[in-house]
């Protein structure tokens, strides 16, 4: 399922992440997944939240740079070899993964993973054809 991801520029200093979670908490925004890619000096914070539009708006009001991109949330069976099978399907279809990370929590025996790929349409079609559960907005709890 295609969902919205908010990315933010982070400086590598104490308290930087706190500034962001404070804003999210104050605005009643619930985080579903979080990931940080970093160098020694700075990083990129990627967020899946229940309300992407509102999040983007409140962060920008605070002077932060955000970009919204489309990523795919996938329900991966929470058992040995679950992710391995999924990656096999993706590799066979010759789809490149830019990055991936897991979402908080799990339910009904599945764990959710977020994928950023080079061709999201092909990615979702491939998974659907192989009967892999691409999670929906509802089960992921997004507005």
């Amino acid at each position: 399922m295609k969902i919205k991801q908010i990315s933010l520029f982070l400086e590598n200093r104490a308290g930087q992440l706190l500034e962001i979670t404070k804003i999210l908490a104050a605005n009643g925004i619930n985080m579903k997944a979080l990931n940080i890619a970093e160098t020694s000096d700075y990083g990129v914070l990627r967020l899946i939240v229940d309300d992407a539009e509102k999040t983007s708006a409140v962060l920008r009001e605070s002077g932060m740079i955000t970009i919204t991109s489309t990523v795919s949330a996938v329900a991966v069976p929470d058992r040995m070899g679950g992710l391995n099978e999924l990656l096999n399907v993706i590799a066979d279809a010759e789809i490149s993964i830019e990055y991936m990370y897991s979402a908080f929590g799990q339910k009904d025996g599945v764990a959710y993973m977020i994928f950023k790929v080079d061709d999201i349409d092909k990615f979702e079609e491939t998974l659907a054809a192989k009967d892999v559960n691409v999670s929906g907005v509802e089960e992921f709890g997004l507005k």
Binding site: Q5, S7, F9, A37, E38, T39, Y42, G43, V44, R46, I65, I67, S69, E98, Y99, K116
Partner: peptide
Amino acid sequence: EMTQENFSDNL
């Protein structure tokens, strides 16, 4: 300073 135009979700 990082700018909106130069920022990317791809590190």
